[in-house]
Nucleic acid binder design. Structure first.
Length: 577
RNA sequence: GACCCCGUAGCUCAGCUGGACUAGAGCAAGUGCCUUCUAAGCACUAGGUCGCAGGUUCGAAUCCUGCCGGGGUCGCCA
C-alpha cells in the first residue's frame, strides 16, 4: 500500500469524472496534481493542490473547484475531515483506521515494503568506479563507488532491470606505463638494484608483488628482451592483477559489479572502427579544425586538421576528435563505441557516476547517445560526486599523490568498516563536498548518524528478543490502540516510505533514503524516550497483553522499514550493538 | 572567454524536483531534568533580509535573467 499514490489516483479519477460531467475537453492534464503529506501535520495527513492546478481548466476559482472535489471525496474510504485552506489546498485528515492499514501493509510486505514497479522493467546501466587499472583504489574513488552501488540498488527496488558495470581503461598509454613500472619491479625481484623509481613510472609498493609474480612465471626470460617483446605479456598480467586487487577492494565495501567491460576488447573486436564508420555513414564525421581553447592556451597548442565528431549538432559545446594525428583512435572514440555497445545491449538508461572533475563530460556523453540511438531514444544521466575530505579528530589528513602516498579505499574501510563508510558517503547530497572524520564516524553517540540509525534497528531487535524471552506470544495486533502523538508521527513516517523511495529513485538521489532513515530513527528514539516519563508508552507492558502484542507488531513494522532502507544503502542492519 | 556545481541559523547540512499560516534538523550556546523496558541521555529556549538585484506566478529557498563570492572543467592524455 502506497497511501499517497493511492490517493493521488483517486483524486485524478474524480477530477476526470468531474470533467466529463462538466463537458470539459479531455484529456485533463493532471500531471501537476500532487497528494502529499503537508509540511505541518496540524494541517492534516494529506494535502492536494488539485484545485489550484486545475482551476483554469475547469474555468472556476480554486476554492470553488476545491469544494466540488471535496464533496466527491467525502464518501471515500479513509477520509475523516477535509477543509479548504490558503489559496485552495484541500487538507484531508484521514480516519484512524488508515494507519493500521499502513502498518498491516508494511507487515504483510515485510522485506518488500517500499518496492515499486515505477521503472516498469526498463533496462538501466549504472557505470561507476571505472578507475584505471594502474593501482589500488584510493579515497577519491570511495564516494562514487558507494553512490553508484546504492543508486543501482535503489533503481532495482523501484522496478528497473539494473546492470552494475565497471569500464576498464586497459587500452591507453597509462596501462603501458604501469606495465613498464611492473617490469622494473620484475627486474628488482630478479635481484637487480633498480634504485629510485624514475619519474613518469608508478612508484607504488603495490607493484612489488606483481614483479615477484612475473619473476615466478617467466624466470629471467623477460629481462633481456626488448620492450616490444615483453610489453604485451607484462601488461596483460599486470592489468589482471591490478583488477583483481580493485575487485577485492570493492568487495571489502560489499560492492560487486556484474560486468567488467574492457576498453581493449572494443578495439580487438573492431567495434571502435565500426562505430566510427557508422558515424561517418550517418554524416556526423568531418575533417576540420577546432578553435584554440579560450583562457589558458596550452603551450604546445598547434592548429591542425583532425577527424571530428559533430557533437555540436547534438548539444555539445565543441566537436570532438576521433583520431589522433598518428591515425590511432582517441579515448573518445572508444568511449563512443562503448556507448554504442551499451545501447545495443538494450539499455534505455545510461547512468554514469563520475567525479566532479568530469563535469565537462556530461554534454558529450549525451551527444554520443543521441547520435547513436537517435535523439530521445536513450536517457543519459550523469551524477557527479564531489570530493571527500578526510579528517582525523578535526585535523585534515594530508595526502600527496605525487609521491604515491595517498590514503587507499582499503585503509578507510579496514579502519571503520564498510557500513560506516557506506552510510556516511550517502549522508550528503552527491554534489556537495563531504567531510569524513574517522573519529566522529565511529563514535557511539547520538551525534553520529550511522550509530543513531543502526542503534534504532538494534533497539527494535532487542525489545523483540526480550519479549520472546518473556514468552510473550505474537497475536493479532489492534493498531487502533496506538494514539499517542509520538506513535502517530511514527506511523505517518512509515506511511511515507514508499513514496519517498520512488521520489529518491526518480531524482537518482540515494541520500534521501539516508536522511529519511535518520528521521525515522529520530521518531523512534523519541517515542522510546517518552516511555521513560510515561510508562504506559513502553513497548512491553506486563499487565496489558493487547497493547504489548500490538506494540511488538508496530516494532516489527518499524524494523522492516529501517532494514529495507538500510539494505538500499548497502548497510547491514545490526541486530545488536 | 565558455560550460558545470555550490552559496539556507555561529558551524555542518536537509528542504520531498513551485505551495500556504511560524523556512527545518543536528552540533555549538543558554536553562532545567535524568542514572534509564538496552547502555552510550531527555525536555525547553534562543538564533536566518534562504549570496545580491530584477522577473515569471494566485504562490519562489525552489523556475528565468543579470551580477557577486567559492570550487571544477575546457583540442591528439586517460
Amino acid at each position: 500500500m502506497n497511501l499517497f499514490a493511492d490517493f493521488s489516483e483517486i483524486i485524478r479519477n474524480e477530477l476526470t469524472a468531474m470533467a466529463v460531467e462538466s463537458g470539459i475537453a479531455l484529456p485533463l492534464d493532471t500531471t501537476r496534481v500532487t497528494a502529499e503529506p503537508p509540511r505541518d501535520s496540524s494541517n492534516g495527513d494529506l494535502s492536494t493542490n488539485a484545485a489550484m492546478v486545475l482551476a483554469n481548466q475547469f474555468g472556476v476559482r480554486p476554492p470553488e473547484l476545491a469544494r466540488r472535489l471535496m464533496s466527491r471525496l467525502r464518501a471515500r474510504d479513509g477520509v475523516a475531515t477535509m477543509d479548504v485552506a490558503g489559496p485552495g489546498f484541500i487538507n484531508i485528515r484521514l480516519t484512524p483506521e488508515v494507519w493500521p492499514r499502513v502498518l498491516d501493509s508494511a507487515l504483510r510486505l515485510g522485506d518488500n515494503y517500499g518496492r515499486s514497479t515505477l521503472g516498469g522493467g526498463r533496462k538501466a546501466n549504472v557505470e561507476y568506479v571505472s578507475a584505471n587499472p594502474t593501482g589500488p583504489l584510493h579515497v577519491g574513488h570511495v564516494r562514487g563507488a558507494v553512490f553508484g552501488d546504492a543508486l543501482a540498488e535503489l533503481l532495482a527496488v523501484t522496478g528497473y532491470q539494473v546492470t552494475k558495470e565497471y569500464y576498464i581503461n586497459d587500452a591507453g598509454a597509462q596501462v603501458d606505463t604501469v606495465a613498464r613500472s611492473a617490469h622494473l619491479r620484475y627486474r628488482e625481484a630478479l635481484g637487480e638494484a633498480v634504485g629510485e623509481i624514475p619519474a613518469g613510472l608508478y612508484p607504488g609498493e603495490y607493484l612489488k608483488p606483481v614483479g615477484e609474480a612475473l619473476a615466478k612465471e617467466f624466470g629471467a626470460s623477460l629481462a633481456a628482451k626488448d620492450e616490444a617483446e615483453w610489453l604485451a605479456p607484462v601488461r596483460e598480467r599486470t592489468i589482471a592483477m591490478m583488477l583483481q586487487m580493485i575487485r577485492d577492494d570493492l568487495a571489502a565495501l560489499n560492492i560487486r559489479q556484474e560486468v567488467f567491460f574492457s576498453e581493449k576488447s572494443l578495439h580487438d573486436s573492431g567495434e571502435v572502427a565500426e562505430t566510427v564508420a557508422d558515424l561517418r555513414a550517418a554524416g556526423h564525421v568531418y575533417q576540420g579544425r577546432l578553435p584554440p581553447p579560450k583562457g589558458e592556451v596550452p603551450p604546445d597548442w598547434e592548429d591542425r586538421e583532425q577527424t571530428l565528431f559533430r557533437a555540436t549538432a547534438f548539444g555539445d559545446d565543441v566537436d570532438r576528435p576521433l583520431l589522433k594525428s598518428d591515425g590511432s583512435y582517441t579515448y573518445f572514440a572508444s568511449d563512443v563505441a562503448y556507448s554504442r555497445n551499451k545501447i545495443r545491449r538494450g539499455f534505455k538508461e545510461l547512468i554514469y557516476v563520475l567525479g566532479a572533475d568530469h563535469g565537462g563530460y556530461v554534454k558529450r556523453l549525451e551527444a554520443v547517445a543521441a547520435a547513436i540511438a537517435g535523439p530521445g531514444q536513450v536517457e543519459v544521466i550523469v551524477r557527479l560526486c564531489q570530493l571527500v575530505k578526510l579528517f582525523r579528530a578535526g585535523e585534515p589528513v594530508r595526502m600527496s599523490k605525487r609521491s604515491g602516498e595517498f590514503v587507499t579505499l582499503r585503509e578507510v574501510v579496514d579502519e571503520v568498516g564498510p557500513d560506516v563508510v557506506r552510510f556516511m558517503m550517502l549522508f550528503r547530497k552527491n554534489e556537495a563536498p563531504l567531510d569524513f572524520d574517522f573519529a566522529k564516524v565511529t563514535e557511539q553517540s547520538k551525534d553520529n548518524p550511522v550509530f543513531y540509525v543502526q542503534y534504532a534497528h538494534a533497539r527494535t531487535c532487542s525489545v523483540i528478543r526480550n519479549a520472546e524471552g518473556e514468552g510473550i506470544q505474537p497475536a493479532q495486533p489492534d493498531f487502533s490502540l496506538l494514539s499517542d502523538p509520538a506513535e502517530l508521527a511514527l506511523m505517518r513516517r512509515i506511511g511515507e516510505y514508499p513514496r519517498l523511495v520512488e521520489a529518491a529513485a526518480v531524482a537518482h538521489e540515494p541520500h534521501r533514503i539516508a536522511f529519511y532513515l535518520y528521521d525515522l530513527a529520530g521518531d523512534f528514539h523519541a517515542l522510546w524516550n517518552k516511555g521513560k516519563e510515561s510508562p504506559h508508552l513502553r513497548f512491553i507492558l506486563r499487565n496489558d497483553v493487547a497493547r504489548t502484542t500490538t506494540r511488538l507488531a508496530f516494532l516489527r513494522a518499524i524494523r522492516y522499514v529501517l532494514a529495507n532502507g538500510l539494505r538500499i544503502l548497502g548497510v547491514r542492519p545490526a541486530d545488536e550493538m
